[in-house]
Amino acid sequence: MSHPWEPDRLLNVVDVEATCWRGPSPRDQTNEIIEIGLCVVDLVDRRRVARDRILVRPARSRVSAFCTELTGLTQAEVDAGVSFAEACRLLATRHQAGPRVWASWGDYDRLQFQRQCGATQVPYPFGARHVNAKAVFAQAYGLQRKMGMAGALRHVELPLEGRHHSGADDAWNIGALVLHTLAAGAWPGDPGAGAPAGDT
């Protein structure tokens, strides 16, 4: 379904980390968001202007040893986080998630929010205007296969800043890829561009 597209100055770049396991999830647990990383990109000044990290307390799962190895997050850390409902409220109030265009690297983040909001009856914090940055990047650079974030950084010779699979660091790095794509004239949020490639 398509929606009217009007470029905005500010873009929210979002990356989430969720509970995970080496292999199938345990029968009594389900994937839940435990970290929301966010980078605000100013598409006019062409710079990253803010970053945020929201730790989320899981209610239906535990942080596995594999999850800690991957993300660096421990059960104790996320136990000190906010509820998923509060995290969504913070996105709406602190970062204007409803009216503001947002982007993620692929569709996982959007779908995870939709699944978890549906399962917990928490209002979905985002509006309809979402950009699949992975798809935009692949189209911009003529790639036959979409790349992971780390591979995309290498492809355009940008450094990986911070820790991969940290939601806050990944959002910051995706923000750099957005700016690189914008500089190439291929980002849909550029005031001079048309409708976004990817899902809107």
Rank of each mutant, 00 (worst) to 15 (best):
D79C: 06
A80V: 07
A80N: 06
A85N: 10
E86S: 14
E86Q: 11
A87C: 15
R89M: 08
L90R: 15
L90N: 11
L91D: 06
A92I: 09
A92W: 09
A92R: 15
T93F: 05
T93D: 06
T93I: 01
R94N: 11
H95F: 09
H95N: 05
A97L: 04
G98V: 14
V101T: 15
W102H: 15
A103D: 11
A103G: 13
S104A: 11
W105R: 06
W105M: 03
G106P: 08
D107N: 14
D109C: 11
D109W: 13
R110V: 09
Q112F: 13
Q112S: 15
Q112K: 14
Q114E: 15
Q114R: 14
R115K: 15
C117V: 09
G118V: 08
T120D: 15
T120F: 13
T120W: 13
Q121Y: 11
V122N: 06
V122H: 12
P123Y: 08
P123Q: 04
Y124S: 05
H130T: 05
H130L: 02
H130A: 09
V131K: 01
V131Q: 03
A133F: 02
K134H: 08
V136E: 07
A138G: 01
Q139I: 12
Q139W: 13
A140P: 00
G142M: 00
G142K: 03
Q144P: 00
Q144H: 07
R145D: 14
R145L: 14
K146I: 06
M149Q: 01
G151M: 08
A152C: 02
A152S: 12
R154A: 13
R154F: 04
H155V: 03
H155E: 02
E157T: 11
L158I: 08
L160R: 06
L160G: 04
L160I: 03
E161H: 14
H164G: 04
H165W: 02
H165V: 02
H165L: 01
S166K: 00
A168E: 13
D170T: 03
D170M: 01
A171W: 03
A171G: 01
W172K: 08
W172C: 04
I174N: 11
L179E: 07
H180D: 12
T181E: 06
L182T: 04
A183E: 14
A183F: 05
G185S: 07
A186H: 08
A186Q: 09
W187T: 00
G189W: 02
D190A: 00
